[in-house]
């Protein structure tokens, strides 16, 4: 009886530590970003200016918010057909076969590759290839970063969707077959609708991951602190900017970087909340 209490107590306090950590992180981000928001006001979020010159310092987050959202949305669009097909293939058509096992572990393997390795591959293989195709700016820019991000998030979208698709009740499918539906009709009219909340959850998870990705993006986006003015334009993302600049930053600039960190935190939070909301509504 006592051991029950102890277990409960331990679990409770350990969980509380996690809460404390998240809260503390949020608090220090807010505290660190106060000087920047005091100096530039809420206009910080929509200002496109990033001028670190001392005496004329002016910082705005818009170029990086834009860069982050554009690369992540691009990644989502590019990865969508790939991961959707893969999850249908793995979770329905070839469920339980050897082929699916091999492919499934390959997809999982993609998730385990460190970001820097994707960056290297993008820098030395993908970029020269894109230059051949005529992509301007020596192959650097939001487009290239989007492609790399797309490959990186495929496993996140795929594994969850596969799981959900393979969990669709057999009775449901058999009912559809007995009504004379073809396999593709079953896939698209029965399986996908009944698994859609899980599929969407997978894509939101993947999108969240793309938002925060740093190293591979830094190596490919061109790191120009401007609002991207086209698909092939160079740019920068929030995470990449912070990684690049925090070492030598101080004073107002450091505060501006922390404020961008806070914004990234908030944006990721909003995306997650939106995901949960969508899932709830669909169920």
């Amino acid at each position: 009886m006592n051991s029950d209490k102890i277990t409960k107590g331990v679990l409770q306090s350990v969980s509380f530590i996690i809460l404390l950590l998240a809260g503390g992180m949020f608090y220090s981000l807010v505290e660190g970003s106060i000087p920047a928001f005091r100096e530039f006001g809420p206009g910080f979020i929509v200002s496109g200016e990033w001028n670190p010159r001392s005496g004329e310092e002016e910082y705005g987050a818009l170029p990086f918010i834009a860069g982050t959202l554009i690369t992540s949305v691009l990644a989502l669009i590019i990865s969508l057909p790939l991961s959707f097909s893969a999850s249908l293939f793995l979770g329905e058509y070839y469920r339980g076969t050897r082929m699916a096992k091999i492919l499934g572990s390959m997809v999982d393997l993609l998730a385990g590759i460190p970001s820097i390795v994707y960056g290297l591959w993008g820098f030395y293989v993908l970029r020269p290839f894109l230059i051949e195709l005529g992509v301007p700016n020596q192959g650097f820019g939001v487009f290239t970063a989007g492609i790399i991000l797309a490959i990186m998030i495929i496993p996140f979208a795929t594994s969850l969707s596969t799981e959900i698709i393979s969990m669709v009740p057999v009775e449901l499918k058999e009912a559809a077959y007995s009504l004379g539906a073809t396999r593709s009709e079953v896939a698209f009219n029965v399986i996908v609708p009944s698994a859609r909340s899980g599929i969407i959850a997978g894509y939101i998870l993947a999108f969240g991951r793309a938002l925060g990705e740093t190293m591979a993006v830094t190596m490919l986006i061109g790191n120009a602190n401007i609002i991207p003015n086209g698909l092939f334009s160079t740019g920068n993302t929030m995470a990449s900017l912070i990684a690049n600049q925090f070492g030598e930053a101080g004073g107002l600039k450091l505060s501006a970087l922390i404020a961008i960190g806070l914004l990234l935190f908030v944006i990721t939070g909003i995306i997650n909340a939106m995901g949960k909301f969508i899932i709830k509504k669909m169920d």
């Binding site: 001392s54 700016n137 190596m219 790191n223 990684a243 690049n244 600049q245």
Partner: peptide, 28 residues
């Protein structure tokens, strides 16, 4: 443009660290 550890560059693109700049130049 002025002088400083980080600038608002009129043209070009950024790479991280000496190895990043050297690597990009070598590649391009």
């Amino acid at each position: 443009v002025g002088a400083g550890k980080a600038l608002q560059w009129p043209v070009g693109m950024g790479a991280k660290g000496n190895p990043g700049v050297a690597g990009t130049i070598k590649q391009t």
